[in-house]
Simulated scan of single mutants.
Amino acid sequence: MSPAQAVPARQVMVLYTGGTIGMQATANGLAPASGFEQRLREQLAEHPDLAIAPWRFRELLPLIDSANMTPQYWQRLREAVVQAVQADGCDAVLVLHGTDTLAYSAAAMSFQLLGLPAPVVFTGSMLPAGVPDSDAWENINGALVMLAQGVAAGVQLYFHGELLVPTRCAKVRSFGRNPFAALKRSGGVARADAVPAALAYDQPKALGNVAVLPLFPGFGAEPLQAVLGSSVQALVLECYGSGTGPCDNPGFIAALKAAHESGVVIVAVTQCHEGGVEFDVYEAGSGLRAAGVLAGGGMTREAAFGKLHALLGAGLPVAEVRRLMEVDLCGELA
């Protein structure tokens, strides 16, 4: 299947990770609950007019609140998707996931599943299935219908009737039916001519050690040194505006240079919802480049974090990781 093709699904695997969509009340508040497959079947039986493909269901145990999502879990999720496509005969996958870290997971899977010849759609809900005014069934049903109509290979995020590119969106609201939005990022580059074989979806990935650190007024060398001293392999540095930082702070710049020289990959993204990193606009930006920081262009925090995990997990040399961070692989810099 060409990545540009949208072929109707014939068999869908529904992977249930937990999250609000299947939560039920406990003494300590809402928590993920098993038994969601039966609830889904009963709900779909009430809507026989829905044009959906045959589907199978798998729980990824233990079910989790997405606030507990980890890169280790992403590895399990990648393996489950690959198994569904390669071993279970499914040509599409629907992932049910909590919304708090859904954008992170969908972005990460965009890089973990490069080249997968099937669509993978993430969805969730802001209210549990079955409660008044819940958006759970409309999101699941809508995603299943869309897969039956045909979705291009690759990872997508579906919410409230809309497909979003995971590497270009974020959760921007903690309420309502439209928590996710495409961010108006800029700073695009040409797409990579070829993807290293180690990044292919069917290749095992090791765990990377990546951190995220936002700048704030008065930011100095100390918090940066604390993070860089924790054995991280890479750092997403959330900068101001078009990619600026406290370049008049010698300790800050020295810490960046030392980390770069020791092989830590540091990527700058903007804290703004719109625009992107362009180092050469301001001296406070070009100083970051001189210290070895890479320009993340229009990448979101979630995309940069997930991309670094994939590149480092593939065991690529640091020089290759640095090169690929500034090349578009799946729409993150388009």
Results as ranks from 00 to 15, higher is better:
R41L: 14
L199G: 04
Q72R: 15
A284M: 09
V131K: 08
Q225H: 03
A304H: 07
S34R: 13
H47V: 02
L77M: 14
S34M: 12
P48C: 07
V95F: 04
L294A: 08
A192I: 06
V85T: 06
S66G: 12
S66V: 06
E59N: 08
S125F: 08
I64T: 13
A304K: 04
A197I: 11
L199R: 07
K257D: 14
M126L: 09
H97V: 08
L324K: 04
V85A: 05
L114G: 07
L224K: 02
A80L: 06
A152L: 00
L94C: 07
R323G: 08
V327S: 01
G218S: 05
A92C: 11
A314C: 00
V327W: 04
A206E: 11
W55A: 00
L199C: 00
P119C: 09
D88C: 10
R173Q: 14
C239G: 09
A148T: 09
P128R: 02
G287R: 10
C330T: 15
A234M: 04
H47Q: 13
L61Q: 15
Q225Y: 01
Q156E: 12
P128G: 03
E261K: 12
V265H: 04
G154F: 01
F279Q: 00
T17P: 10
A314W: 09
A153H: 07
C90I: 07
V264G: 06
A310D: 04
M126V: 09
G161R: 09
T244R: 04
W137I: 11
G89T: 12
A129C: 03
R323T: 02
G243V: 04
G124W: 00
P223V: 08
P196A: 09
A108V: 14
V82S: 02
L147T: 04
A6L: 14
D193M: 13
Y158F: 15
A152N: 07
P48W: 06
Q75I: 14
M299K: 03
V82Q: 01
A319S: 15
L116G: 05
C239T: 13
V172F: 13
V81Q: 00
P71W: 01
Y282M: 01
E238N: 09
A9N: 05
G18H: 13
L40V: 13
D91K: 02
L288V: 14
S105Y: 09
S134R: 10
